[in-house]
């Protein structure tokens, strides 16, 4: 592992498997009477959230607390950011307070990278979603969930077929998943209307389809993306109803999936838009499980970044 987790594309297969294996051991903690480990005692994790978030923020908070770290939550609303404070000055403040790790969500793609490489802070930076770029811990928890259901909870995802449907253009979840699932050996197919695919998608390590119905019968896991109305400043499809009819996952489409296939959604869902309510609540849906797995995966990431010695002298391990 590197000192920061900025992008799923940075993770090697071994890094990713280390996170998943670690998360698997940590998942047992949730079943114990005492859901806490002393490992990060005395370390401070700052959740720096410039964008609204429910599950990612509380997931990171729960993960850090289960490892006994001190958690400081910062949201842009109600802070000096609304008075115009820059990212740099906020970062310098956090550094002065002794943050060992900063979990950052920002509407600007690349903000975590800037934070990690500008020398403003010494701690580890974890990207919790930056603009339309990446959301690596989401991809890790998705890979974990797929592995638990379809690969017996061990090894990589070689040969599994994952179909990601929806607003790929605005989705950091899709980008992170394509890179990570590819690294782990899965075959990814993106499904979206042409207007919701980013420029250059043909260079991503995945297939692209404009039709949802073609890939479904060969799909092991289908991941529905949220239609991100807040990021859409122009019309990308004629109407919500038409989008739902052509790209939504309803009970009829779910029936086309193989028997063992699972249905995923990173949340928050627009029920009735990209996913039918009956599908979201069906037995095949692992959406709630994804949230549970998110805590284990984020514990693993925080442990691997913060648990050991500072990661400057990597070579020492060989001794």
């Amino acid at each position: 592992m590197k000192a920061h987790l900025l992008s799923a594309a940075d993770l090697t297969r071994d890094d990713a498997l280390l996170v998943l294996d670690t998360a698997q051991e940590l998942a047992q903690i949730a079943d114990r009477p005492i859901k806490k480990l002393p490992t990060l005692r005395g370390r401070t994790v700052v959740n720096l959230f410039y964008e609204d978030s429910t599950r990612t923020r509380i997931s990171f908070e729960a993960a850090a607390k289960r490892l006994s770290a001190d958690v400081i939550n910062f949201s842009a609303k109600g802070s000096s950011v609304s008075k115009g404070e820059s990212l740099k000055d906020t970062a310098l403040t956090l550094e002065a307070m002794g943050a060992d790790a900063v979990v950052i969500r920002h509407s600007a793609s690349g903000a975590p990278h800037r934070l990690a490489t500008s020398g403003w802070i010494r701690g580890s930076v974890v990207n919790a979603g930056d603009g339309t770029h990446e959301h690596p811990t989401q991809a890790l928890l998705d890979a974990y969930t797929i592995r638990e259901h379809l690969a017996g909870g061990a090894g990589d995802l070689a040969g599994r077929r994952v179909t990601i449907v929806g607003d790929v253009l605005h989705s950091r979840v899709a980008r992170s998943n394509v890179h990570l699932l590819h690294t782990l050996g899965a075959q990814v197919t993106l499904v979206a209307p042409p207007t919701l695919l980013p420029v250059g998608v043909e260079q991503w390590p995945c297939d692209v389809s404009y039709s949802i119905d073609a890939p479904l019968p060969q799909t092991d896991a289908v991941m529905m993306l949220r239609v991100q109305a807040e990021r859409m400043d122009s019309a990308f499809f004629p109407s919500a109803r038409e989008y739902s009819r052509r790209y939504g996952l309803d009970a009829r489409r779910m029936a086309a999936l193989p028997e063992h296939a699972i249905v995923m959604h990173p949340g928050p869902m627009n029920r009735g838009m990209e996913i039918g309510s009956d599908v979201a609540d069906s037995e095949r849906s692992v959406i709630v499980e994804q949230v549970t797995n998110g805590v284990s995966v984020r514990m693993a990431v925080l442990y691997l970044l913060l648990g050991g010695a500072p990661l400057v002298a990597d070579e020492e391990e060989s001794a």
Binding site: M1, L18, D21, T22, E25, L26, Q28, L37, P38, T39, Y303, L304, L305, L306, G307, G308, A309, L311, D314, E316, E317
Partner: peptide, 21 residues
Amino acid sequence: LDITMYRDDLRRRPARALLPT
């Protein structure tokens, strides 16, 4: 019973992989 998370020398080496409990 894996003891990795309870070691007193965790900070002396890079984070170790966990072993099964």
